[in-house]
Amino acid sequence: MKKEILFVLLNNFADWEGAYIATNLNAGVEPGSESLYTVKTVSATKAPVRSIGGFSVLPDYAIGDIPTDYAGLVLIGGMDWFTPEAELFVPLVKEAIEHNKLVAGICNASVFLGMHGFLNEVNHTSNGLEYIRNYAGTNYKGEPYYRNEAAVRDGNIVTANGFATLEFSREILFALKADSPAKIERGYRMNKTGVWEDPISE
């Protein structure tokens, strides 16, 4: 049975930030390859959420009816991570980290992780050190662990800046062991460069 990865979507979410990882998890890293995971969406309620790009998504789960056996959380960025609604997800993230599940945040979702102290002792990145320092507030004490990189994976925690959708996807696939490292890298290169590479036989 496939394991569920929950994409946390708030209103005005950045739809492009989850596109690559959702496809790779739900359909497999390469055409014809086995998919080990299925993507589900979660929001504060089951009411539709609308992306920055204008897509409406009907969440699979409200925050109160999430199954306990999910394999990880992917927090998609957007300005609403600075709203009271986002605070509803703090216990969920805390529980996921305590149970060694994947927790991934991109763009302002990485700032949200910093706001609540989840990045204080793990290597991470965001939209710049000054950005996370200014927006995360006094609970953020993770400056010594900040890395000025596109995406950073430290154990089961993955962070990325808002321009690093492909790097975010790659590090999540590695963290989840979604396929062989060679296939994950090949898929990353092709999407990054737009140049087709011959399939890898394993």
Rank of each mutant, 00 (worst) to 15 (best):
N26H: 15
A27C: 08
N156D: 09
G18D: 06
L166N: 06
G162L: 04
F13G: 00
G53F: 03
F89H: 07
I52P: 00
G53Q: 05
L6Q: 04
A19I: 02
R189G: 04
M1A: 15
W16V: 09
D179C: 10
W81N: 00
L102W: 01
N108G: 08
G117F: 01
T23N: 02
G18E: 10
A96R: 09
I157G: 02
I184N: 07
E17V: 03
S180M: 10
L119F: 07
R147T: 11
S56P: 00
L10F: 06
G77V: 01
T68Q: 14
F55V: 11
F163T: 12
V93N: 01
I63V: 14
P199K: 05
I66R: 07
L36C: 08
D80V: 07
G187R: 08
L58V: 14
S126F: 07
A96L: 11
I157A: 01
A104P: 02
V122H: 10
E149F: 06
L173N: 11
G72Q: 00
Y61T: 09
S35V: 02
A178Y: 01
N127C: 10
A136P: 05
V195P: 01
L119Q: 13
A62L: 08
A86T: 07
Y70Q: 04
A44S: 15
V195L: 15
R147M: 15
T125F: 07
H124P: 02
G18T: 01
V29Q: 00
W81S: 02
G128L: 08
T165N: 03
K141Y: 06
R133L: 11
E197F: 12
A19S: 13
Y131S: 13
M79F: 11
K46P: 06
V122C: 09
E4W: 03
I52M: 15
N156C: 09
L102R: 03
I66Q: 11
T83V: 10
P84K: 07
M115G: 05
K40Y: 12
N11S: 10
F174I: 15
R186N: 11
G137Y: 04
Y131K: 09
V103D: 00
G105N: 02
N123V: 01
E197R: 11
T165L: 01
K141M: 11
F112T: 01
G155T: 07
F82L: 13
A86H: 05
A136L: 09
V74W: 01
I5H: 08
V122N: 05
E34R: 14
L58M: 14
L113T: 02
L9K: 03
